[in-house]
Amino acid sequence: MHARVSFEEIRKIAHLAKLSFSEEEFSRFFQDISDIIAHFEKLNELQLEGVSPTSHISWSDPPMNTDEPVEWQGSDLVLQYAPRVEGRYFIVPKVVEKEEKPS
């Protein structure tokens, strides 16, 4: 079995997902993810030349909305369940205004 993932990549994925783990957990994830990837390697044994990737297995046209607004009545309830609210704002720790934000 050949692992296609490095320890550093596991750390990076955890960092991007804002998750922190103990060294022991990292070792376990490294093993588990390596096994999963090894399992997927099996698929590469198939002849897939010229087969385009499939993101969905449905061939029907997706449903679409018409462009007419409908009001939803539950926003008060959502605010009620939020950990912190001031006025009608959801409150989060101060975001530095100049912080890098993707667009």
């Binding site: 912190r84 001031e86 006025g87 009608r88 704002y89 959801f90 409150i91 989060v92 720790p93 101060k94 975001v95």
Partner: peptide, 12 residues
């Protein structure tokens, strides 16, 4: 804003 006191940001 008036609703925001301390080191917080509001989300709309």
């Amino acid at each position: 804003g008036p609703d925001l006191r301390g080191a917080v940001s509001g989300v709309d």
